[in-house]
Design a protein around this nucleic acid. Structure first.
Length: 921
RNA sequence: GCUCGAAUGGUGGAAUGGUAGACACGAGGGACUUAAAAUCCCUUGACCAUUGCGGUCGUGCGGGUUCGAGUCCCGCUUCGAGCACCA
């Protein structure tokens, strides 16, 4: 009988589904293992062959762990809220829910064909009210919490209000936006509205005036990770800065913990590094500079280079800094206003593109606290308002940006490090000996930079000029979106004060609206909803939550997906804990993976879950790129020339649909039928074939290089697809999809089939076959642990070839082989398990074979013998021989004589199982 | 600019400091077949010798450590990724 995937695969998929083979429940008698994929956004284009790469990898691991006796949680769901469905709704008027439901159905059918072992009974969708109830709940909990910097965790806001009522801000330890100072009496005297506004300074979910990335084209704000190089990640539309009153999450309060938490995670170094960059911790000092002639005004600045204070020759303020109006003198007023105006009209993008040095003098001078010297205060947009204090001390000799500014405006440059040549550029390195750094109270001359920084910090703290300060680049997350297709905020407004809906009114359902556009008044789309108010008549919040809201805690929901009382029950959470293995793309490094860790830590602080990190081990699968094919049309003709001959003509390369090309050979008939303009195309062939050129590009419709997994499954089967995707190369590496090699994997499955088709009997296995099998067990087990799936596939190929050559029919060999293969190619394994091996139960319940090292022990060993590292000959000796005997035999062996001739042996090196090396002189 | 990776045949890629190129594709040759498909066998890093043995060079470049380096160390080159007027 021939191997027929078309018959086998649907049959077993149905079997698994009917018997709920992959359904799991907590089982205290077995250890748990949680394998999770980053759930997909179901786009209209469906899955291409790149998407399942990570899913296949996690599926193999999940199946492997199950065979090892673990109770494996391996769920799947959909990140269903998002911009594309809404954009589509705006264009067509179709409800995003309809589009989303259709897309999910398509994804599901595509996923089902690949044979994953998901427990579909645990499926979640972020747009499902049963799911987003808990997104809304978490938001409310954040509103009712603040971050206590003394206990170093989120605490109920009631603890904070109690403190304010008793002591005012005196002795308050809370992460906040501004340093506020008031007494208990002042707090008590505030109106409810004032109290509400003040509390926003500390709430973890708060309303705040912030500079946001506003995308006019999309009509919404975007988070920092949704913007790249000044344009929106989705759509590529320009983004500008705008001050808006928005819901925000105080992610910044968790910056240090997010950084520290990385230490104990089993993530790749590069991913941790990316997160460290994003969090951007920098340790420095905050220092106050007096303004000459204004006794009541200090400029507060942040610097990491306190040591360079003797080289400060001017100060710079960000244009948005509150200091600007205070230091601008009447004479300079006009010039400053003109400059501010100019800066305001530049978008973020424009600022980034033209890096022209611009600025204006404020008219005032600051006083260097160490030298007493007066230095001018400038205003320039190279200083960012949002980082540090929005003001800097400029040290042109040792900072390239200050240097450029000093050169442009002809300001003095004082070198502070011995041997630093600052005539052409600044010396930014933090090394060398200090010079020119002595004042009446502090002398840094001769110190190393590192020591000078420490010494200066000490000094300024003693003198009360400043203090040591840690700054983070990580900003609070802006949590409002002016969109329709997202979670509604469970918030209403009464007398201008935001209130949370009571718990029994959750979930607050997303209302129906007539058009998915902002209202005439410029309100978000929810402004169109009828009766969008509480039963008492209070207006509800019109913004919706961003995409990351629903994806931040979904992993918890899978543990207990139908619970209507809690996000996850304590019992389910105690059993499943957190994700043991998370697989997904690296594009989520600074978005989802930061928010999710934040969200998780918050829920942990408030006692709702048991783990303070969500994802123990994380693997980033590489991207599968497209491999485009080209045909070469001779200019101004309809004649196409094969790739090998194209240089003889003047040609235009044209993208050809890769689905009508096989092994770079174009199917010319299909090509003619592909598009009307190629109907009467002529071809200049080589060796009777039309060979296409190729290039690696992004997989996209416009390049005609999208390969649908359905087509591969149809032609070769899911098992071939699974094996081939793993065989393509290391999991974590990006690589182009190239169908050229798929036949090799398919051939392997046919050989495997043939091996079992030859019959299975109970004969005793040969020593040779045992060796083949146990070599495979050892290799595959260690490869799976290291996610080195490509080499395991190679090991299977070798094994099957050897067993075929050995004419092995022994059940003792062929049965374990099927189990080893089951994670990789579950359909054929299941089929062989039943038909060839005669089992009634599913192969999923088998036990992973144990490795027996004794099978591999040889009675003879072949040693490569080398002299001075040069490989000379092989020597086969009994395994029982000891080191001394082996070396003696090597020196006495034929061929050794010319190396030993008249030379003395310096030393001998014996590496068991590897090599015998004899060093002679 | 800073940080982190990577570089191996025609191609994708293997190699705990120990015979570089596993495995696969592609290519070439052969068997079976009227023929094709399918299947099987041989060759396939380069160069020299191929009348046999074989020999020389080879993991981006230049040094170093070591009996021995694709692998470790130092210095470059190129490519990729992340961050980027973050003081």
């Amino acid at each position: 009988m021939e191997y027929n995937h078309k018959e086998i695969e649907p049959r077993w998929q149905q079997y698994w589904q009917e018997r709920e083979v992959y359904k799991v429940n907590p089982d205290p008698t077995r250890p748990k293992f949680y394998v999770l994929d980053m759930f997909p956004y179901p786009s209209g284009a469906g899955l291409h062959v790149g998407h399942p790469l990570g899913y296949i990898a996690s599926d193999i691991y999940a199946r492997y762990k199950r065979l090892q006796g673990f109770n494996v949680l391996h769920p799947m769901g959909y990140d269903a809220y998002g911009l594309p469905a809404e954009q589509y709704a705006i264009q067509t008027g179709q409800h995003p829910e309809k589009t989303t439901t259709e897309n999910i159905a398509r994804y599901r059918s595509q996923l089902d064909k690949i044979g994953f072992c998901y427990d579909w009974s645990r499926e979640v969708k972020t747009c499902d009210p049963e799911f987003y109830k808990w997104t809304q709940w978490a938001f409310q909990l954040m509103f009712e919490s603040y971050y206590d910097t003394a206990t170093n965790r989120a605490e109920p806001i009631s603890k904070l209000t109690a403190h304010l009522a008793a002591h005012g801000t005196e002795g308050l330890h809370a992460a906040g936006g501004k340093e506020l100072s008031f007494t208990a009496e002042e707090w008590a005297a505030m109106t409810p509205k004032e109290q509400s506004d003040v509390l926003m300074n500390w709430r973890i979910a708060y309303l705040g005036h912030t500079m946001v990335n506003w995308c006019p084209k999309l009509g919404t704000v975007l988070a920092n990770d949704e913007v790249c190089e000044g344009v929106s990640l989705r759509g590529g539309y320009p983004v500008e800065q705008r001050l808006m009153y928005q819901w925000c999450l105080r992610v910044s309060a968790y910056a240090q913990r997010l950084l520290d938490g990385l230490e104990k995670l089993d993530w790749t170094d590069s991913l941790k590094e990316t997160q460290r960059n994003w969090i951007g911790r920098s340790e420095g000092a905050e220092m106050r500079f007096k303004v000459a002639g204004k006794d009541d005004l200090d400029l507060e600045i942040f610097t990491t280079r306190a040591d360079t204070i003797f080289g400060v020759t001017f100060m710079v303020l960000a244009p948005e800094s509150a200091y600007v109006s205070q230091v601008t003198t009447p004479e300079q007023k006009e010039a400053v206003e003109a400059y501010l105006n100019e800066v305001k009209h530049k978008t973020e993008r424009e600022r980034m593109i033209d890096k022209k040095v611009t600025g204006v003098f404020s008219g005032s001078y600051a006083v260097n606290p160490l030298t007493g010297r007066e230095i001018p205060i400038w205003i320039s947009d190279y200083v960012l308002a949002g980082y540090g204090t929005g003001a800097i001390m400029a040290v042109p000799a040792h900072d390239s940006r200050d240097y450029a500014f000093a050169r442009k405006f002809d300001l003095p440059i004082i070198p502070l490090i011995e041997g630093a040549d600052v005539s052409e550029q600044s010396f930014d390195a933090k090394s060398g000996k200090m010079i020119n750094s002595a004042g009446p109270e502090l002398n840094l001359n001769g110190l190393e930079v590192k020591d000078a920084i420490a010494r200066t910090k000490e000094f300024i703290a003693e003198k009360g000029i400043g203090k040591v300060k840690v700054n983070f680049r990580l900003r609070d997350a802006i949590f409002s979106r002016q969109r329709y297709w997202g979670e509604p905020f469970p918030v209403y407004y009464k007398d201008g004060i935001p209130h949370m809906l009571p718990a029994d009114r959750l979930p607050l359902l997303l209302p129906e609206i007539d058009q998915y556009l902002p209202t005439e008044k410029g309100e978000p789309p929810l402004g169109r909803a009828k009766n969008w108010q509480t039963p008492e008549g209070y207006p509800l919040e019109l913004n919706t939550m961003p995409g990351f809201a629903g994806s931040s805690a979904y992993y918890l929901r899978y543990m207990d997906p139908r619970n209507s009382e809690a996000l996850v029950s304590p019992e389910a959470n105690a059993y499943w804990q957190n994700v043991d293995l998370y697989i997904g793309g690296t594009e989520h490094a600074t978005g989802h993976l930061i928010y999710s860790r934040f969200w998780n830590k918050f829920l942990y602080d408030r006692g709702h879950i048991v783990c303070d990190e969500p994802f123990k081990k994380l693997i980033n699968q590489g991207m599968i790129q497209g491999r485009s094919n080209f045909a070469y049309r001779i200019k101004d003709t309809n004649t196409f020339v094969s790739a090998g001959l194209k240089d003889q003509y003047d040609v235009t390369p044209i993208h050809v649909d890769v689905n009508i090309v096989s092994n770079d050979i174009l199917d010319t008939e299909k090509f003619r039928a592909w598009r009307p303009e190629f109907n009467n195309a002529e071809f200049i062939l080589e060796d009777g074939k039309y060979v296409c050129g190729w290039a690696v590009e992004k997989m996209s419709k416009s390049m005609f290089n999208v390969v649908n997994p359905d087509d591969i499954v149809e032609r070769y089967g899911a098992d071939t697809l699974r094996l081939y995707e793993m065989f393509l190369g290391p999991l974590e590496q990006s690589k182009p999809w190239d169908t050229n090699g798929i036949d090799g994997v398919n051939r392997f499955l046919k050989k495997l089939w043939k091996l079992y088709d030859g019959g299975v009997d109970d004969s005793a296995p040969s020593a040779e076959s045992l060796k083949t099998l146990h070599t495979l067990i050892k290799k595959v087990t260690s490869d799976i642990e290291q996610f080195s799936y490509n080499t395991s596939v190679a090991a299977f190929m070798i094994c099957v070839n050897e067993l075929t050559a050995q004419k092995c029919h022994s059940r003792a060999i062929l049965e374990p082989l099927v189990i080893l293969l089951a994670p990789f190619a579950p359909h054929i394994a299941e089929e062989l398990w039943h038909s060839a091996l005669g089992h009634q139960s599913t192969v999923c319940d088998a036990h992973w074979p144990a490795f027996d090292p004794s099978v591999l022990v040889e009675n003879e060993v072949t040693y490569p013998v080398s002299f001075n590292g040069k490989m000379r000959f092989n020597l086969t000796l009994p395994a029982s021989m000891g080191q001394e005997e082996v070396i003696a035999a090597a020196m006495g062996a034929e061929g050794a004589a010319k190396w030993l001739d008249g030379k003395t042996v310096v030393k001998t090196i014996f590496v068991p199982g590897k090599i015998v090396n004899i060093v002679v002189k």
